[in-house]
Nucleic acid binder design. Sequence first.
DNA 1: CAATTCTGAGACATGACTGTCTCATTTGGC
DNA 2: GCCAAATGAGACAGTCATGTCTCAGAATTG
Lengths: 203, 203
Amino acid sequence: MATDRDTVLEAAVGVLSRRPTAHMDEIARAAGISRATLHRLFPGRDALIREVGLLGLQRFAAALDTADTGAGDAEAALRRLVDASVPDAMLCAFLAGENQLYEHDDINDLWEVQIARLHALFLRGQQEGVFRIELSAAWLSEAFFDLVAGIGWSIQDGRLAPREAAFSLAELFLGGALRRPDARTPHPPAHSTPDRKPETDTP
Amino acid sequence: MATDRDTVLEAAVGVLSRRPTAHMDEIARAAGISRATLHRLFPGRDALIREVGLLGLQRFAAALDTADTGAGDAEAALRRLVDASVPDAMLCAFLAGENQLYEHDDINDLWEVQIARLHALFLRGQQEGVFRIELSAAWLSEAFFDLVAGIGWSIQDGRLAPREAAFSLAELFLGGALRRPDARTPHPPAHSTPDRKPETDTP
DNA sequence: CAATTCTGAGACATGACTGTCTCATTTGGC
DNA sequence: GCCAAATGAGACAGTCATGTCTCAGAATTG
């Protein structure tokens, strides 16, 4: 029985991350409360969805703060970000699946701020020679967030043990994102070779 | 103006992959036809969604067929799968975001068959020493599909050039999934070290 | 123990989307 | 140019979820 707003939000995430179109009935039952009480806590469905999205973005922003992505080695910063964001992976899964949120301008702005922070981290890592420059920072940002969401879905469905989550995410993503100090790309790309030039953001 | 069923389905994917709750009106407008004609082509919304999902699964199954994932080097097989599945990345994005599909048993079965084929490819690669065994084949399967979906979203939103898609996916994913022939893991995992034992499926 | 507050269950009206229909218009074939 | 088929626009009822209300019962507080 969860009468707290935050507790209800947590329960709502559990339902909405898998079924974004869940009715108020389902959300209320998932939280162990009645539909009436749910409406007493949140003005309506829109407000509830919006608050869940806001919670997710705030948690992800807090993870970026905790990881202190602007300091030190870019690889170490990303590892800190992995550890900080995996506990809220389910919220990220909700954010990835709920594209209806982007109708609200404030949510959209907050989202873009966090993506910009991710982008900046990858750009810095590329300029420092830590991350590969053949992959655009935008793609690295997108892929990282998608994998965090994938972690959330996998854990929720019982396909991934929570203890393995951070390790699995860090090893898979960093393996593909880090420049190899010794070995070059295992095979030269046979398809289209994007001759990407190292980007700069601070002119 | 798209009067063909397949053309309408393609247009529907474009809308539904981003807004899974789009109304019939929006889908019809996206296809350039009226709501009446849309209803003449498909019995109802459920049938339309179901056919889009079926199309996505059939395309992904066809990609697995084309790639011939059971033959030859596992890495080469995965590279073939990347090339074969990237053109249908938007459909995979739809599949990843539309969890409501899994109420239909036939769709669910077809889905699990394809995931099993992916899983088998990664398991084989692990047994042949091509893919890392510290990451479970289940996680590799999930991550691969999530990244294909991410490719689809990125292309649709104009954040990734279609020409770079296959390269970006293959390099990022294979970099994290392949065993490094010479260099070991850049940093020994400081967090929890899952002492995974190499799995077997054919006893 | 009594009073207050909060919750759950249900009823109710509202609104939105869906599915079906009709009819005028257009398209395409002959 | 005529006829047939198909399309678009709109109207219509049905359905479902939402949001609000009331009331009885439970929990908490004094």
